[in-house]
Design a protein around this nucleic acid. Structure first.
Lengths: 115, 115
DNA sequence: TCTATATACATAAGATTCTTATATATTATA
DNA sequence: TATAATATATAAGAATCTTATGTATATAGA
């Protein structure tokens, strides 16, 4: 994952970001994911292709995502969606992430009202 | 960093955890850091030596920490403390981490009251 | 018209950070 | 007397990222 502001910070969050967006959106393609993340975070988290595409391939390989290519304006788009297995996984991963962020907030004295 | 619950989750947070603890505590030694983190997080975040010691060495090499060895009960302890440079760095890193966690919470719909 | 930007995907090389395993040594506990 | 706790350290390998490159089409501007 990339961003000018958070260089190298909190690796390992890309997976859950992808999974969560697909939990909300039914189906999305890679480039769309980069744009949505950029919008939601006001340009503060900028995903790089070098991180995103391998991550999508891995999730697909693990059976958490299904993929289907479509031609739009003569350009290929690869749409991803959560599989059954993927839908179950998001829930588990989200809870883990929430819990971890709560603990991290505790360690950093960040007043973890979010817990 | 290690923990049974968050396998491989959120790499890159170890540095700021160390720096923040040293901002609160003046000086600490490695083993002490593992114990404090374990206590604060109710055993949910367990640092491994393989991650902690190299991280401490790196921070020292970068000039953010100073180290001094002491003998306690005939056992060597290596105490670390923030340097001038380290004290400045913690503030910057803490703000980055806070900001990142806010954005992550946004992306994950975690009701980011903490922001 | 041509050039740059946006859209869209992909991969390879290298860096960083972690896990797992091993090693050493002293003290306390069962 | 053996095991756990205390205390530090490093090496091999895995995972995830950054940076760079490559391909290709569509659109907007000069």
């Amino acid at each position: 994952m990339n961003s000018t502001k958070y260089k190298g910070l909190l690796k390992g969050s890309l997976q859950i970001i992808i999974l969560k967006l697909l939990q909300n959106n039914d189906r999305m393609y890679g480039y769309e994911i980069t744009q949505v993340v950029k919008e939601i975070t006001n340009g503060e988290i900028l995903l790089t292709e070098g991180a995103l595409y391998p991550a999508l391939h891995k999730l697909e390989k693990e059976g958490l995502l299904t993929a289907s290519v479509e031609l739009v304006d003569n350009r290929a788009r690869k749409y991803y969606a959560l599989s059954e297995k993927g839908r179950a996984k998001v829930k588990v991963k989200l809870n883990e992430t929430k819990s971890f962020m709560g603990n991290l907030a505790l360690l950093l004295n960040l007043n973890p009202k979010m817990a």
